[in-house]
């Protein structure tokens, strides 16, 4: 979650309306953010169940998320993950809200899995989540634009990985990859592409300023460390390994860790490179404001053919243009 809300001495977390299914979730107090402050006010107590008409009324007022206390969210989160398929297929909720729910659940689940430091668990979790990412991704229209609008941008590895997974899957689909298993592998690969950062000291990853030369050198070890961690896992495919190992390579050989060029780079890694940079540019950083979508695309265009695969970048850009025309 990007924003911290305070009220009654406890922290709150945002819950997309698409996740509010009284049949699946236990009753909890629901809150609204107070306008222009970071404080909250009670919207509905746990003993008064929320109805579909209430959700419609909230949406009519432009509200797409409610707040629940962090302690309540901890109870809800596993249920959201367990019932994700049902929640995402409920078409009474707008596509953008369902994509927002998916993004939230993927981020939370990755945070939990990554904290276990158990690579087999992490890989299994990403495979499961990838199913949902692909299922909703391939049946949604203009999903890339919607995901870009709802994605969390809180500068942490799990959020970044969740966004890269969604973007990568949708870009691969837009490029004509239709095989569901392949798309699932790309989605899971997107979640795993930065797994090497688990071995980079947190003081460097969360540093609120530009990195020194030495810190940059340490950070640049993460593709190789990710490769080393993942190659031991039987379930990880060659393409997924290349996403982790080659996503910082450039088409002209200026990237790292190897400096491979053009077609020496795996297709999935070239896809990952585009969405990884787009996600980073549109995301918050302690030392700069997030770039808008059009600013990010303009910055990336300057490196078309040198950093990025021209054709893949063109496809990525065209999806935003199509989305704005629709």
């Amino acid at each position: 979650m990007s924003a911290t809300f305070i009220g009654n001495g406890s922290d709150f977390k945002l819950l997309p309306l698409a996740g509010l299914n009284p049949d699946l979730l236990p009753p909890v107090n629901l809150h609204l953010p107070a306008e222009k402050t970071s404080r909250v006010r009670l919207y509905r107590s746990a003993d008064i169940p929320i109805k579909a008409s209430d959700i419609d009324a909230l949406r009519a007022h432009g509200i797409t998320e409610l707040l629940v206390a962090s302690s309540d969210y901890e109870k809800i989160q596993p249920l959201l993950a367990a019932n994700l398929g049902t929640l995402l297929s409920d078409e009474s909720h707008p596509q953008r809200e369902r994509l927002g729910l998916l993004n939230r659940v993927v981020t939370d689940t990755l945070r939990e899995a990554f904290s276990s430091n158990n690579m087999a668990d992490i890989v299994a979790t990403t495979r499961e989540l990838a199913t949902h990412v692909v299922d909703i991704g391939i049946r949604s229209k203009n999903a890339i634009r919607d995901v870009a609008m709802i994605a969390n941008h809180d500068f942490c590895t799990f959020t970044h990985s969740a966004n890269v997974a969604s973007y990568g899957t949708l870009l691969a689909h837009a490029m004509g990859i239709r095989d569901t298993d392949e798309l699932r592998e790309i989605a899971a690969g997107g979640m795993l592409h930065d797994v090497g950062k688990l071995e980079i000291p947190n003081r460097i990853l969360s540093k609120a300023g530009r990195l020194t030369k030495e810190e940059m050198t340490v950070t640049r070890l993460h593709p190789a460390r990710g490769f080393q961690l993942l190659r031991r896992e039987q379930e990880v495919s060659r393409g997924q390994l290349m996403m982790a190992y080659q996503h910082h390579e450039w088409m002209n050989g200026d990237g790292y860790p190897v400096g491979c060029v053009g077609q020496e780079l795996h297709l999935w890694a070239r896809i990952c490179a585009v969405v990884d940079v787009f996600e980073a540019l549109t995301g918050k950083r302690p030392y700069r404001r997030p770039n808008s979508i059009s600013e990010s695309l303009t910055i990336m265009e300057r490196e078309s053919g040198t950093h990025f695969d021209e054709e893949i970048l063109r496809c990525w850009k065209s999806n935003f243009l199509e989305g704005s025309r629709a």
């Binding site: 190789a224 050989g253 860790p257 190897v258 400096g259 491979c260 020496e264």
Partner: peptide, 11 residues
């Protein structure tokens, strides 16, 4: 430990 491309088909 590491591999670096230095020329075409030369690492």
């Amino acid at each position: 430990a590491r591999c670096r491309r230095v020329a075409d088909k030369c690492f």
